[in-house]
Simulated scan of single mutants.
Amino acid sequence: MKRRHLFEFGDCQWLPSLLRDYMTDYLRFVSTKFNLFGGTLPRLTEILEHTGQTQIVDIASGGGGPWLSLVPELQSKVPDLKITLTDRYPNQAGMNQVAFALPQVVETDLRSIDAREIPADLVGLRTQFLSLHHFEPADVVSILQNAIAVNEPIAVFEAQQRDVEHLIRFGLSPLFVILLTPFVSPFRIRRLVLTYLIPIVPVLVFWDGIVSVLRTYTVEEMLQMAREADPGQRYEWNAEVINSGQIKNPCLTGWPVGPLNQD
């Protein structure tokens, strides 16, 4: 299936932040409830142990990402774990909810942070969950180059593949939005109105879900972009599909061949 970089509503600057937040709240809930990224824990642990890192800078965190389900087990392997949540359009309430639940581990940076240009004061393993497909190939190369320039390891994970199976799965997303919305926090009357009375949120999630599948990179494409970003082969790159039950997580990981920055 050919990759098609159609538009997603969540990427549009003109989309009201209220609607974007409702979408990312839903994604955080689903990621946590169904442990979409549980299969990535061995890779995260491996990178942190290999590089000696204890800090994670999470890029494009949206409403807080999958950390509510990942932190308890990851922290058992990395006791000094610290995570900073960032996004270009930060969902402040969603991020703060995760930070409040995990106050010893998670903090938020509510600046508008471009994944292609992470501020120098944010150091540590860079992670992305369910967000790489938002970027065109040239931008993915820039994201990787930005990490390489400061000698920081990086790990990106998706929760879908570009195939018919996932088009069907994501095509059912409006049904799940309708069923799960009452359980999504923080509770908002407007969320219920825009889901049931005026079903804007299910439509937005449906469109962006289908487009996400069509935008998703294969592991071969991820590796090709990594090679383009790192022609000097300064990093060790690995790409694979992690199978965890019915969930498939395409991922790309990379870390410096030489010593990490210790500044």
Rank of each mutant, 00 (worst) to 15 (best):
W255H: 14
F176P: 04
R162G: 13
E228T: 15
R111P: 00
M1Y: 12
C251D: 07
F37G: 00
R88Y: 08
W207V: 15
V184E: 02
P103W: 06
N146P: 02
R88D: 00
P72W: 14
G65A: 08
T108Y: 03
Q262E: 15
R43K: 08
S142T: 11
I242C: 05
L172I: 09
V150L: 03
A226E: 00
L122Q: 03
E236M: 11
F100R: 07
F183K: 14
P259D: 12
L197D: 06
T253L: 13
E49L: 12
K33Q: 12
Y196V: 05
D11W: 01
A239W: 01
P231W: 10
R116T: 11
N35G: 06
P231G: 10
S17Q: 13
A159D: 11
V177C: 14
E240R: 06
S131V: 09
E158T: 02
L194W: 07
I242N: 04
P79K: 08
G38C: 02
N35I: 09
I47F: 02
E165N: 10
V57P: 02
F7I: 11
H166Y: 13
Q145C: 06
P259K: 09
M222D: 13
L167C: 08
A159Q: 12
P90F: 01
V106Y: 02
G258I: 10
Y217D: 02
Y217Q: 05
V219T: 15
D11N: 04
P79V: 10
F129G: 00
P66F: 00
V30T: 07
F9N: 08
K248E: 14
A101D: 04
P256V: 08
L74C: 08
I118L: 06
F129L: 02
L6E: 07
T24Q: 02
V105N: 01
P79Q: 10
L36H: 07
T253R: 05
E73V: 05
F187E: 07
S112D: 09
Q145T: 08
L81E: 09
Y235H: 06
V78Q: 13
N249L: 13
I200P: 05
P153L: 07
D80G: 12
L132N: 05
P72F: 14
A120Q: 05
E236T: 15
P137M: 15
Y235A: 06
D263V: 11
Q75T: 10
Q262K: 15
I210L: 15
I198K: 09
L68W: 03
L260Q: 07
L252G: 03
L110C: 06
Y89E: 04
F157Q: 01
V98W: 01
S31Q: 09
H50E: 13
Q104W: 00
I189M: 10
Q145E: 09
L197N: 06
S76K: 14
R4I: 15
Y235P: 01
P174V: 12
F7A: 12
V123W: 04
L260C: 08
V211C: 03
